[in-house]
Amino acid sequence: MLKIKNLTKIYEGGVLALDNVSFEVPKGQFLAIIGLSGSGKSTLLRCINRLIEPTSGEIYWNDINITAASDDELRTIRRKIGMVFQHFNLVHRSSVLTNVLSGRLGYVNPAMSIFNRFPKSDIENAYKQLERVGIADKAHSRADELSGGQQQRVGIARAMIQNPEIILADEPVASLDPVLAHSIMQYLEKINQEDGVTVLCSLHFLDLVHRYADRVVALNEGKLMFEGPPDEIDDAKFKDIYGKDAERVG
């Protein structure tokens, strides 16, 4: 259970990115976060693992207060929260395997990891995760030799090797074509359904939301505009979320 209470983020320079946002995500849910660009979706996701420090408000995860955690505690929390990014954020010059193994950095002994030593079990696990996303043969390629869709699958493998309880996906398919988008979303769906991982996924396209999400949270200029199942987004709600001039397509 993830509980977000009165979360507010004001960036330096006074931009209000999140305005008193509160909602809850039960364990095992596939939650979609929608809203226009700049509505605060990325900020919200990054506040959850504190890649961005919230200005005020609290985030509870299984009764642990993430916002109050010390640096050490935060690292222990982060290793249970996987993250998938719009631009994949792989280290281009490292091999695919190293990129996946970097998901274990929170667990392994820091001194050993500096010399690129990982336990055998982790290396086996990394191959298994790559196999699961269908690119086991690319394990020793350099990350930047892969296509966009393949890179995002490495990103998912990296998140999954963390053995996470939550996955934060920040527009994971926005840089991919529609066919690839569906295949990536299907991986996330599989992780959600087979492993029971809670998924928070920000999305642009409503058809993806309808197809994959259990529940939707909508943001507009940092404010929570809507919370509920995808079917409840009618035309009036749509205009609340995307503005008066927006037109529904498809």
Binding site: L51, I77, R78, I81, M83, H87, V91, G155
Partner: peptide, 13 residues
């Protein structure tokens, strides 16, 4: 900055 963010998010020190 992206890769750094990604590595940090895994709980790396």
């Amino acid at each position: 900055a992206g890769p750094i963010e990604a590595v940090q998010a895994t709980g790396a020190n």
